[in-house]
Amino acid sequence: MMIEMQDVTRVYDMGGEEVRAVDGISLQVEEGEFVAIIGPSGSGKSTLMNLLACLDTPTSGTYRLDGVEVGKLDDDQLSLVRNSKVGLVFQSYNLLARMTALENVELPLLYGAHQGDAAAAKQALESVGLGDRLHYWPSQLSGGQQQRVAIARALINDPAIVLADEPTGALDTRSGLEVMDIFQRLNREGRTVVLVTHEQTIAEHARRVVSIRDGRIVADEAVASPRDARDELARLPMEEARR
């Protein structure tokens, strides 16, 4: 079992008032699954995402990631888990502006337990189709390209899961589909992918959709026939394609 959440809550204290952003969620994700977590804004999906990414720890309940009980870890150990087991992709890319694409991808290697090599970073960029943009600054890249750099960065330490928080939220249709195509390919190659989104069409690229409302899971069902991003890309109108 890759992800094993048991009755997890995350309670914030907002000026004396308790806010139960995540209110008793139990969730299992097997190795090799592609899960979309969907919910409207304020549903607690971002909080759940932060918990899954080990950026935050549960108020109560247990969370095991790849066999590690996250709630029992101290800050340094959590950092190491984020570094080695989690590949994070954000809506706003979160690249460092003063680093080239290659340097951004190498960033997690700075903090890793094992000394990664530069060849791996180059390879990661090539695998997302940016082999010719290694030394570009983020500002010289399109949104879609920046997000692909972020994906390469997420993959550099060969993580147990790839977690993506609204990865297409800031992108146009084509760039968004290109990103979804990469996630689908990664999943086909056996990687566990968890995607958080509020868009039904994006969620339908996954093979399982978990719906969240008010901090609780309200539905959890398999997708009978997931959308195929590559097909959708091929079907896009030509003028759209040229953009």
Partner: peptide, 16 residues
């Protein structure tokens, strides 16, 4: 602050 957040997210410890 955001840079610090990004570094923390990819595994930087407080010490780093």
């Amino acid at each position: 602050t955001r840079e610090i957040g990004i570094r923390r997210a990819v595994g930087a410890r407080r010490k780093d």
